[in-house]
C-alpha cells in the first residue's frame, strides 16, 4: 500500500519534471512555429546561472526562481534579435540555425565553465511514507510547475496580452492589419519561452547537477512532449506530460529505465499515428 502511494507520488514528480522541461519549448514552438533546438542549452545555461548565483552567496530560491529565468530571457532577446528574427516562417532554417546555436553554446560553456558537473544541494529535506523515504524537492518542483501552468493559462485565456498573443499565433497577417506588431509579439514570446527554459534549468540544478552537454538529455523528451501535446501550448503540454510522464514512470518501476524510455517513445509514436496533430489537435481544440 505504501509502495503504491510512493509510485503515485513519483508519477506526480515525473509529470512535473516533464512539463517543466517542455514548457519553454512549447511556448516558442506553439506560438511562433520556431523549433528551438538550442532549448536544452537554454536549460543548461539556466542551471549554470542558478549555481553561480548560489556560489556567489545569493539565496537559492532567488537564484532558481528569479536569476536563472531572467538571465536566459536576456539571452533569448539577444538571440531573437540577432538570429531568429531573420528566419521567421522558415521552419527548417530555424531548426538548422538553432542547432548550430546549440553546438556553439555547448562549446562556449565547455570552454568557460569546464567540462565537469557542478551541483548544489537540494534546498528542502525529505519525508517518510511508511518504510519509504522520499525527497521533498520533487514535489516543491511539481507545485511550482502547477503555478506556472495555471498562470500561463490565465494570462492566455483572460488577459488582453494573451488575446494578442493568441491572435498573432492564429493569423499573423490579420493580427498585423488590426494594428498589432507581430515582430514585437514574437520578441516577447521568445523571451518568455527562454525564461521558462532558464527556470527549468535553475530548478533542475539541485536534482541533476549541471554539465555543458546536459541539454542533449532533455531536448528529445521535451520535443516529443510538445509534439504529442499539439497546437495548444498550455493545455497540450500539460496533457501530454501527464500521459507520457505516467507511462514512463510506471514502466520504469515495473521494468528498467531503458524500457521506461522505450515505453515513452512507443506511446508517443502511437499517439502521433492516431492523432497526427497532437492531442489538442483533436480534443480540447482551441484551448490556450
Amino acid at each position: 500500500m505504501d509502495y503504491f502511494l510512493v509510485v503515485l507520488l513519483q508519477i506526480v514528480g515525473a509529470v512535473g519534471n516533464l512539463a517543466l522541461i517542455s514548457v519553454g519549448l512549447a511556448v516558442i514552438f506553439g506560438m511562433m512555429r520556431v523549433i528551438n533546438l538550442a532549448h536544452g542549452e537554454f536549460i543548461m545555461l539556466g542551471g549554470f546561472a542558478a549555481i553561480f548565483s548560489v556560489q556567489a552567496g545569493i539565496n537559492i530560491w532567488l537564484a532558481m526562481l528569479v536569476i536563472a529565468p531572467l538571465s536566459i530571457a536576456v539571452l533569448g532577446v539577444v538571440i531573437e534579435r540577432l538570429v531568429m528574427r531573420r528566419l521567421y516562417g522558415r521552419m527548417v532554417d530555424t531548426m538548422l540555425a538553432s542547432w548550430g546555436l546549440s553546438l556553439l553554446l555547448i562549446g562556449l560553456a565547455t570552454t568557460f565553465f569546464g567540462n565537469r558537473v557542478v551541483g548544489i544541494a537540494a534546498p528542502v529535506g525529505s519525508f517518510r511514507i511508511g518504510d519509504y523515504s522520499l525527497g521533498a524537492y520533487d514535489f516543491v518542483l511539481a507545485g511550482i510547475v502547477l503555478v506556472v501552468f495555471a498562470g500561463g493559462y490565465a494570462v492566455l485565456r483572460f488577459t488582453r496580452a494573451g488575446l494578442i498573443a493568441r491572435a498573432t499565433m492564429q493569423n499573423r497577417e490579420m493580427a498585423s492589419s488590426l494594428g498589432i506588431e507581430p515582430s514585437r509579439v514574437y520578441a516577447i514570446t521568445f523571451a518568455i519561452g527562454s525564461a521558462l527554459s532558464g527556470l527549468a534549468g535553475g530548478l533542475l540544478a539541485p536534482i541533476s547537477g549541471v554539465l555543458p552537454t546536459m541539454g542533449v538529455a532533455y531536448i528529445a523528451k521535451a520535443f516529443i512532449t510538445v509534439i504529442t501535446g499539439g497546437a495548444s501550448v498550455i493545455t497540450g503540454t500539460a496533457l501530454s506530460s501527464t500521459l507520457l510522464g505516467s507511462i514512463n514512470t510506471v514502466s520504469t518501476f515495473v521494468t528498467t529505465p531503458v524500457l521506461g524510455d522505450v515505453a515513452l517513445l512507443l506511446a508517443a509514436t502511437i499517439f502521433l499515428r492516431l492523432l497526427p496533430t497532437g492531442i489538442t489537435g483533436r480534443i480540447f481544440k482551441g484551448a490556450p
Binding site: A14, S208, A217, P257
Partner: peptide
C-alpha cells in the same frame, strides 16, 4: 541489478525500488 544508459539523470524510481528491496 539495474542498468542505466549514460544519459540517465533521474534515479527516483531506482531509489524507491531499493527501499522496497531493502
Amino acid at each position: 541489478a539495474e542498468f542505466f544508459p549514460l544519459d540517465v539523470t533521474d534515479f527516483s524510481a531506482a531509489i524507491q525500488k531499493i527501499q522496497r528491496e531493502k
